[in-house]
Design a protein around this nucleic acid. Sequence first.
DNA 1: GAGAATTCGACAACATGGTTGTCGATAAAC
DNA 2: GTTTATCGACAACCATGTTGTCGAATTCTC
Lengths: 156, 156
Amino acid sequence: MADDRSGYELPLLLASAFRVLVDELHEELARQGHPGVRPIHGFALQALGPDGASISELGRRLGVSKQAAAKTAVAIEGLGYASRLPHPLDKRAWVLVRTERGKEMLRLSAAVFSQLRQRWAERLGADRVRALEDDLQVVVTVAGGAKLGDLPGWLH
Amino acid sequence: MADDRSGYELPLLLASAFRVLVDELHEELARQGHPGVRPIHGFALQALGPDGASISELGRRLGVSKQAAAKTAVAIEGLGYASRLPHPLDKRAWVLVRTERGKEMLRLSAAVFSQLRQRWAERLGADRVRALEDDLQVVVTVAGGAKLGDLPGWLH
DNA sequence: GAGAATTCGACAACATGGTTGTCGATAAAC
DNA sequence: GTTTATCGACAACCATGTTGTCGAATTCTC
């Protein structure tokens, strides 16, 4: 078990572990009153930040075109997680801001992720989880930082 | 740095690390004579196994419809990584098998992944990489095994 | 200030990669 | 042997991204 593994396993393990976390998050969200959320929604909601952002700005933050961002905006508005306000200075633009329900969903997501991390710590040991995070942080940083560019694409 | 992290970081680190590995693999593949390969192609080629498989069987192994599998089959045939032979017993079906070039690409991929893993080991320590793999293996197994179901979907 | 260049977000057209449904041909089950 | 299931192709559709264009509004430059 601790012996040398094929190089193939590492990427599969990383992808599977990611899937596990995201799937468990969304199962729990669905259970707690947020059944329609897709990963991209939470991602976009986080990108809005506490102060909101214009559609174009959201697109830039997510690394997609403003047209794609506009569609995501419609989706999270429809679910009640964000709402569109007239921009106070720029009459062309909107400001997309988190609603109370949106903030609630982010809080819940954070809580669930913490819980899941806690479960990992109980099974693996808190030090091992920290080591895992630190090690991944190192290799990701060395490779030029988090490549979240088209993560949205993966997340549907 | 070793202090407690938010639960949010773990999934982002996993996804980023996966992206890093896959991107570096494909950069190297492109450099070594395989410029057109997409992650899904290697994945499908592996799914074929040494003995090949029918289109429908490939779809089942990849967790997609046979129509989607047929498209992938056309793609990897076009790139010269697989070829379609009449099924020896079933006149309805084809057997899709790896070509020499396909096998060569898989060998190269395995070599590159091993190299990348080696680089991680040099930076983090071989024991840490093994620990990382073992730990991920545990959490993935506990959660019901590798969820590669729609990994193909992510991989374009 | 006035005019030019840019940026906002909507709309249309298209690309890609998946889906389901149908179909003729062939196998397999009864 | 007749019925049922499976093979792979084709068509239609859906979802999610893209680029290009447009009118309106802002910002830059002189």
